[in-house]
Amino acid sequence: MEPVTMEQHNRLHIHHRKILAYLLLEEGDKNFMRLERKVLRDRHNPFETPNVNFINMFRSTKEMALEIINILEEHYPMTIANNAIPFYLKVLVTLHFLGSGSYQTPVGSVAQICVSQPTVSRAISDICSLISQHLMPIWVKFPVMEADKASVKVGFYNKYGIRGVIGAIDGTHVEIIAPPVADNDHPPFVYINRKGRHSINVMLISDSDMKIRAVDARYPGSVHDAAVWQLSNIRAHLMAQYNIGIRNTYLIGDSGYPLEPWLLTPFANTRNEGEERFNNLHKTSRNVIERVNGVLKNTFRCLSRHRILNYHPAKATHIIYASIVIYNMGLNAGLNMDVHEDDEEIDENLPVNVPVEINRNLLVQGREERQNFILANF
């Protein structure tokens, strides 16, 4: 397909530019501008809806939406075909889908724009992929610099009274449709989780402010949390840091994870007051990641346990990443996330008794580190 000329590009996007300029005008100047009906394919401009309605509809402020549009548009290939509708509409229908979980035909109608189902489907795939590539590295960062680690540690200590913690880790399942039987790269049976449903097992790490600091959505539902962690780049980083002598830096996780010198898990059976106090403090502090799971799925209903992503696993992964990016952007913008606990998952992780290779030396070191932690803090 031939790329568009500069003249064609300008003609295709002139209405888009008008809308962005319109939004930046003072209220008194807006009477001088009128949107042409064919721009939005009806009389409604989504950016003119009240702020509260806009946030409910797109899970973002108008400023956030414009920032996403402006950044992603620079990376979007310009051709006649993919500019059949303005780029900003593709972003808005995607944001609405992430927030509502509604299937594709209702997305266009709620946004009051006449967009066909195939167009919406392509927009969701394209925009989520762009968000994963170009916004996730900016908005989802694990603390690796000393200043960042110190800031996160202070947050956990001030809120929960626990020292040295740079994140709480947990896994959550996002249900998907079964991949095609003939898909050798994504065989359907490996996506069947313990509940008999097809899903992706998503590893999340959050700080004390409920900001997601790391995510891994590459593995199917049959893979245990401990196995996802064992293959994680975050684990490799923390192990390397420990081996060069950087200690007193921990993640906290439930009993579904193996005890390691950099990953503290609770005691299965406490034997004294110190261990009991450790377990209580550990549980209170770890609650933040369980709340994150609930709030994330309640805010971005496409991830909810009441929905199923009707996408191939590769596309579903990008949808998960895009939802987390918008979640973090919303926290940064001060949005009041819809904190309902109706979608919070019950902690069903089992102790590590699955076929995961456990390094016995690390287990011994982890026990020593946990005991030292108790002696130093209790």
Rank of each mutant, 00 (worst) to 15 (best):
A226E: 08
M203N: 10
D183N: 01
A226Q: 04
L204D: 02
I200E: 03
V190E: 09
R194G: 12
I205E: 07
D183I: 01
A182R: 00
R218D: 04
K211G: 08
V215M: 03
P180V: 02
R213F: 07
Y219M: 12
I205M: 11
P220W: 06
F189K: 02
S199T: 15
M210W: 08
D185E: 07
P187N: 01
D183M: 03
I200N: 06
V181Y: 09
K195L: 15
A217L: 06
R213N: 01
Q230R: 12
V190W: 00
H224T: 11
Q230I: 12
S208F: 14
N201W: 03
Q230D: 14
H224P: 07
G196V: 06
A226S: 13
H186E: 12
G196T: 05
M203K: 04
S199C: 09
H224V: 05
V228D: 03
N201M: 02
D185R: 12
L204A: 06
R197Y: 05
D209E: 15
D216S: 11
I192S: 01
N184I: 11
A214C: 08
Y191G: 07
I212R: 03
Y219P: 00
P179Q: 13
V228C: 12
V202L: 02
N201C: 05
P179T: 09
R194I: 08
G196C: 04
H224S: 14
H186G: 02
I192K: 08
A226C: 13
D225K: 05
S206P: 01
V215Y: 03
H198T: 13
Q230H: 12
I212D: 04
P180Q: 11
I212Y: 06
D183R: 02
S199K: 11
D185G: 07
S199M: 11
M203F: 10
S199Y: 06
G221I: 14
A182W: 00
K195H: 10
P179W: 13
A214M: 08
D207R: 07
A227Q: 15
G196S: 07
V228K: 02
H186V: 10
V228G: 06
L204C: 01
K195D: 05
R218N: 10
R213S: 14
S206Q: 00
V228N: 06
S222G: 11
N201V: 11
L204N: 04
D185P: 02
I205R: 05
D207E: 10
R197W: 13
S222C: 15
K195F: 11
V228I: 15
M210T: 13
D207M: 01
N193A: 13
S222N: 14
P187C: 07
D225Q: 06
F189S: 06
D183W: 00
D225V: 04
S208N: 08
P179Y: 04
P188S: 09
A227F: 14
D185S: 00
A217F: 10
N201S: 02
P180N: 12
S208G: 01
V228W: 08
L231H: 07
A227P: 10
Q230V: 13
N193W: 04
W229T: 11
V190P: 00
D216K: 06
P187M: 08
V190T: 07
A217Q: 01
L231N: 14
M203Q: 15
A217T: 00
H198V: 14
A226M: 14
V181I: 15
P188H: 01
D207Q: 06
S206H: 00
D216I: 15
L204S: 04
L231M: 10
R197T: 10
R197S: 07
W229I: 08
P220S: 11
